[in-house]
């Protein structure tokens, strides 16, 4: 235990501060956003990058964002994958279960236009085929930093004007 304590002290703060500089409005905790991840048939790449947002380097929670377990608690659906046909029903049900006002973000090239999978019989050309997409984060996969920047952009606007 002593070694761990020494290590923590020596390591100092892991969380990167350079990202906060872009977000001067962070003082307001009234603007907290709850995200529900919705996998629509992704290869797993975007999903792992999304979960990296929660590690101590990016520490998403300090910006007033958090991932929640139920769509009932969510303001934002972050969707990955080209919309696999066998998931279409579940994706729609998740969207329906999310209370208004809400926002859909397409994360990664597959979610935006189907990516390499768009011609496959079991995939559609992006989550936009089933859900109204408000924001796109391109990349294969987008890095956690890309996602963080896109999310921070949201907070610059008035919450009421963003959520529909």
């Amino acid at each position: 235990m002593w070694n761990l304590l020494k290590r923590s002290l020596r390591m100092g703060r892991l969380t990167e501060s350079r990202l906060d500089q872009d977000a001067p409005h962070l003082h307001s905790l009234k603007q907290s956003w709850h995200i529900r991840h919705l996998d629509c048939g992704s290869c797993n790449g975007c999903d792992w990058e999304m979960s990296a947002l929660l590690n101590s380097v990016y520490d998403l929670q300090r910006f007033g964002f958090d991932f929640v377990a139920s769509p009932r608690h969510a303001d934002i659906l972050m969707c990955t994958g080209p919309l696999a046909t066998q998931l279409n029903q579940a994706a729609n049900a998740t969207y329906e279960a999310t209370p208004h006002p809400k926002l859909v973000i397409a994360v990664g090239d597959c979610a935006i236009n189907g990516g390499v999978f768009k011609e496959a019989y079991g995939a559609d050309s992006g989550v936009g085929e089933a859900l109204p997409v408000h924001l796109e984060i391109p990349g294969c996969p987008p890095s956690p930093e890309d996602m963080l920047k896109a999310l921070l952009k949201l907070t610059e606007k008035d919450r009421k004007s963003v959520l529909t």
Partner: peptide
Amino acid sequence: LFFTHRGIEKL
């Protein structure tokens, strides 16, 4: 499983 089945082998 197989909810994320996209048909990659056919693709």
